[in-house]
């Protein structure tokens, strides 16, 4: 309908039909289809690791260490002769567990805190908003290091550290959306007519926040995976012999000359998964959270 006159620089683009299903709109472009397919494949590989892994990820074979790819070992073997591909599948399992737990944890903390900070007025608002600022002033990884110092290295500490590190980011986004929504007329009128605050939040504010929250949680899932890799890379995350993308990289770092594949393969997995998740997050933003899409 819109003639070129009414549109901006992107004049020629046609507007997608507004009532198409959520799924249809999300997977509208080839890029989005590819991104979500990659994410799905990674999740499947992680879930099905025991079925598809050609070897026991922890079975050592000290006569065949640091083998290049071939001879039944698609990605070669590591310094203990363990099959690299099998370890990669199991590492994805760790990443998936950590990603999912972190995402849930962040949603559980960040969402209510953000709602509170956005909707409360007066002293409570100031205190919670400042608390979020303070959380943001502690770089997530550094905060995680501090928490791990207190709790000891390991998967449990990693998850808790990542939850604490990332919650302020969700809280901030939620707060800013709530601040916008609460100025809408229907929220104002609900307030004026004496609807109870918690009811307003549940009925009017929360539904508006969910889009932005979903997008943000997709990103947090992605960053939890990188976060784990970073912490495990320096030996503070998932502890060997359990495989994780980070501790596989750490091992690979010792053999960059002899077996570069050890350091390359897990990194490729991280980068591809991350790229797919970021791209998928962008697509999700366009569909679920149009007010923020670029």
């Amino acid at each position: 309908m819109a003639g070129p006159e009414t549109a901006g620089p992107g004049a020629a683009e046609t507007v997608a039909a507004p009532r198409a299903s959520f799924q249809r709109r999300l997977l509208a472009t080839t890029g989005q289809k590819v991104a979500w397919t990659i994410v799905a494949l990674f999740v499947l590989a992680a879930l099905a690791a025991p079925l598809i892994a050609p070897f026991d990820p922890n079975a050592q074979d000290l006569r065949h260490t640091l083998q290049p790819s071939g001879g039944g070992h698609l990605l070669g073997t590591d310094d203990f002769g363990r099959d690299q591909l099998s370890r990669l599948f199991y590492a994805l399992r760790s990443s998936l567990v950590i990603g999912v737990l972190t995402t849930f944890g962040v949603a559980l903390i960040g969402l209510p805190v953000g709602l509170l900070a956005g909707y409360a007025r007066g002293a409570l608002d100031v205190v919670v908003a400042r608390a979020i600022d303070i959380g943001l002033a502690l770089p997530s990884l550094v905060l995680a290091l501090g928490l791990i110092a207190a709790m000891g290295a390991g998967l449990r500490s990693t998850v808790i550290a990542l939850i604490v590190g990332y919650s302020p980011y969700l809280a901030r986004v939620v707060r800013s959306v709530v601040l916008q929504v609460r100025q809408e007329e229907y929220v104002e009128s609900a307030r004026v007519t004496g609807v109870r605050p918690w009811r307003i939040v549940l009925r009017h504010v929360l539904p508006n926040v969910l889009g932005a929250t979903t997008v943000q949680l997709t990103l947090i899932f992605a960053f939890a995976i990188v976060g784990e890799a970073g912490l495990s890379f320096v030996g503070l995350g998932v502890q060997p012999p359990s495989a994780s993308l980070g501790n596989m990289l750490a091992e690979g770092a010792n053999y960059t000359l002899e077996a570069p594949m050890l350091a390359i393969a897990p990194g490729v997995a991280i980068a591809v998964l991350l790229m797919a998740l970021l791209f998928a997050g962008d697509g999700l933003r366009d569909v679920a959270d149009p007010r923020r899409s670029r």
């Binding site: 309908m1 819109a2 003639g3 070129p4 006159e5 009414t6 549109a7 901006g8 620089p9 004049a11």
Partner: peptide, 16 residues
């Protein structure tokens, strides 16, 4: 949408 502004902008070479 009838082309008024586009006419004006093309006059100065300011089209999108």
């Amino acid at each position: 949408g009838c082309g008024k502004s586009v006419t004006a902008y093309s006059l100065l070479g300011l089209l999108a």
